[in-house]
């Protein structure tokens, strides 16, 4: 027997699933194109929207603030949707049940998904950030690789929450509607629409426990500071921790035995 001990974390099995998910993506050219190009196009629309609106005196332009935040929100939303559908497909096609009878552990499977879509998000972020600063003159004070890093952390958070949400979805209709349930409240309360300090106290408290708040805060730090700040790293830590927590919860809700 050359097989490794089952039901334990195995980087080899995680990598096998990462490779498989990426190969599935590779066969789907339109999805790749949309994943890589769509955020740049949408960001361009935002740039045009605020192009003729003068910036308030002494403050960054609205596009600089919103555009930077969007660099974190796009990968979060896209990866949430893509993973919750991908996982639902695993369920309905019977492949999930089959995978659960193989030596691969549930966390291996979910980490495999997280890594695959994290890599896709990295490619997406590199393109979007490059286009934003060259074509749309988005002003970012901090180092661009860190912006990409935060975008990837946001994408992994989206993947983890998507995997978790898919456990509660019985159909595609339900899965798609988890997007507004999980994503929109986080978007409303993250501090982009209304500065957090101007929110009612209880809304601020809710905002404090939503991971996207920290993702947006990390990006805002990079918007004004030329180097990484301690607060930014703390934010990234919170986002990553929330993603790992959601992955662990998703693994726990993934039932090997079903009726």
């Amino acid at each position: 027997m050359t097989t490794a001990a089952p039901a334990r974390l195995s980087p080899r099995l995680t990598a096998a699933t990462t490779g498989r998910v990426l190969r599935q993506l590779r066969h789907d050219h339109r999805t790749i194109a949309m994943m890589l190009v769509l955020p740049s196009l949408l960001l361009g629309l935002l740039a045009l929207l605020w192009a003729d609106v003068p910036a308030p005196p002494g403050q960054p332009s609205t596009f600089d603030r919103v555009g930077l935040t969007m660099l974190g929100i796009f990968p979060f939303v896209v990866m949430f949707l893509v993973t919750s559908i991908a996982m639902l497909r695993e369920r309905t096609s019977g492949t999930l049940e089959r995978l659960l009878t193989t030596p691969q552990s549930r966390l291996d499977l979910l980490l495999g998904y997280g890594t695959a879509f994290g890599l896709a998000a990295a490619a997406q972020a590199v393109i979007t950030v490059t286009v934003a600063v060259t074509l749309y003159d988005l002003d970012i004070a901090g180092p661009l690789p860190l912006v990409v890093l935060i975008a990837v952390a946001d994408a992994v958070l989206g993947v983890a929450l998507g995997l978790l949400a898919s456990a509660f979805a019985r159909s595609e209709f339900q899965a798609v509607q988890f997007m507004p349930v999980v994503v929109l409240p986080q978007f409303f309360l993250c501090g982009l629409l209304v500065p957090r300090e101007q929110m009612a106290g209880w809304l601020q408290a809710v905002s404090d426990v939503l991971p996207l708040t920290y993702a947006v805060d990390a990006l805002q730090e990079l918007g004004s500071s030329p180097a990484a700040t301690g607060r930014m790293w703390a934010d990234v830590g919170v986002v990553t921790g929330a993603a790992l927590l959601a992955l662990a919860l998703a693994a726990a809700t993934l039932r090997r035995r079903t009726s």
Binding site: L13, R23, G94
Partner: peptide, 28 residues
């Protein structure tokens, strides 16, 4: 233990070879 469900449970968006290689990898 190997299990083949009644409905083919393979990835429709992968080639036959890619499917087999994935499950091969999962079994070492």
């Amino acid at each position: 233990v190997g299990y083949v469900t009644q409905a083919p449970s393979v990835y429709a968006d992968l080639t036959v070879r890619e499917n087999a290689r994935y499950f091969a990898a999962l079994h070492g």
